[in-house]
């Protein structure tokens, strides 16, 4: 429906970027670029967001939070990686505490290059994301990249046994399991 694309709400998460892109995203919300004229509000709440705007190359400590936030956003949703480091890791590629880009963990729909991305480019990227978002529906559930393999195995097993399949629940359980097994956040000080 055409009305739907006029109201995308964004959630912004910084997984270890240099603040440059975050500042530019905020500048986009300012009067000069004014994202609100496209109906876009910055809702700092994943449960009410549609577009997940991620910046930064994903450091090791932000991984679990990134996955959690992604899981909390209800479908249909799109992910926009803003800035060079969110796309590929950029200047931080292959550093020891960095995971080289958002798409190692969650499926990314739009990559916005630039270091830092210009507000104009961010606007263009978000418009592109809205085009992709338009096609998606409530039922189009995407699987985080890290658990793709396990998900397919579990799904085929369940289908084999003739169980009823709730894809969302399976993904949720698998992500929780993955976070628990691999990414347990240390509590410091």
């Amino acid at each position: 429906m055409s009305a739907k694309i006029k109201s995308p709400w964004i959630l912004h998460y910084n997984c270890g970027s240099c603040n440059g892109c975050d500042v530019e995203i905020l500048a986009c919300l300012g009067p000069k670029y004014d994202l609100e004229r496209f109906g876009i509000i910055n809702k700092g709440n994943p449960k009410q967001a549609d577009i997940f705007v991620v910046t930064g190359p994903v450091t090791k400590r932000t991984r679990a939070r990134l996955l959690r936030l992604y899981m909390q956003i209800p479908e249909p949703k799109v992910v926009v990686a803003v800035g060079t480091c969110a796309c590929t890791g950029g200047p931080f590629r292959n550093m020891y505490n960095v995971e080289n880009g958002v798409d190692r963990f969650i499926p990314v729909d739009v990559y916005i290059p630039g270091c830092t991305a210009r507000p104009e480019a961010i606007l263009k990227g978000i418009k592109k994301a809205i085009e992709i978002w338009k096609i998606k529906t409530k039922e189009s559930i995407e699987v985080p990249v890290v658990i793709q393999k396990e998900f397919e195995e579990t799904l085929s097993k369940m289908v084999l046994h003739g169980q009823t399949v709730d894809r969302r629940k399976i993904i949720h359980d698998l992500v929780n399991k993955y976070i628990k097994n691999n990414l347990e956040v240390t509590k410091c000080d």
Binding site: K4, K6, P8, D34, G39, D50
Partner: peptide
């Protein structure tokens, strides 16, 4: 700033139903 269109709340409404 320019601000959203007048019908923006209803666009939000329709979107939230589809979520």
């Amino acid at each position: 700033r320019q601000g959203p269109p007048l019908l923006q709340p209803f666009y939000d409404f329709i979107k939230l139903v589809e979520k």
